[in-house]
Design a protein around this nucleic acid. Structure first.
Length: 196
DNA sequence: GCCAACGTTGGC
DNA sequence: GCCAACGTTGGC
């Protein structure tokens, strides 16, 4: 599913009683612990997935100020990255999923850090979530701005063929719509986009 | 269109 | 708290 801007594919999940919004952070001891700590001023890297026919990199470039809110994420792992991991100035690869071929096509920058995703408060929105209320929001988003399009897209098969990218989160955890990227991985992919 | 991976839900 | 059923992502 697109991390974002889903037109109206499915009905909002029906919830009954109001549960407390989960705000615990067990992941800080988990596999992703490293992405939540950083040295002062350190820049971190991420990868955002979007289906090209839902919201492509060109759509981002065409948006006002080349900026959009990355809304509609409804997965707790991705939410944790949005709420607690991503900081202003971090850079993100823009990945077109479900494409032929799927590929990393551009770079964007976090320009606003995690804040409540108000699509979850909107009863008419396909991703409305009754459990998420303004006082204790469950879901978060960031704002990202287009930085540059890669000279050429770097496709999923190319990424998978690289031994030095074998541990890339994109390749190891398929379904997460937002994944961390290490600095080494970032540099490798950028170099690949410069080839040919 | 199929299905692997995996998160969420709900019965017990 | 276990776990089966179900839903979603996204590659193939």
């Amino acid at each position: 599913m697109p991390a974002k801007k889903l037109a109206a594919k499915k009905a909002a999940p029906k919830k009954t009683a109001a549960k407390k919004a989960p705000q615990s952070k067990p992941y800080e001891q988990g596999a992703w612990a490293r992405v939540y700590t950083r040295a002062a001023g350190e820049r971190r890297y991420w990868l955002l997935k979007s289906e090209a026919d839902v919201f492509s990199y060109d759509d981002l470039v065409a948006a006002p100020k080349h900026t959009t809110c990355w809304d509609s994420v409804r997965n707790t792992g991705a939410r944790n990255f949005l709420r607690d991991g991503m900081k202003k100035g971090d850079l993100c690869f823009y990945y077109h999923s479900n494409a032929e071929p799927s590929a990393i096509v551009g770079i964007c920058e976090v320009v606003k850090e995690g804040y409540p995703d108000d699509t979850a408060f909107d009863k008419s929105h396909p991703y409305y979530d009754a459990d998420s209320v303004p006082d204790t929001p469950t879901w978060f988003m960031v704002d990202v701005r287009a930085v540059s399009k890669l000279k050429r897209g770097v496709t999923l098969p190319e990424l998978k063929a690289r031994i030095d990218l074998a541990n890339m989160a994109l390749l190891k955890v398929g379904r997460l719509s937002i994944v961390p990227v290490t600095e080494a991985e970032w540099d490798i992919v950028l170099a690949m986009s410069e080839e040919h």
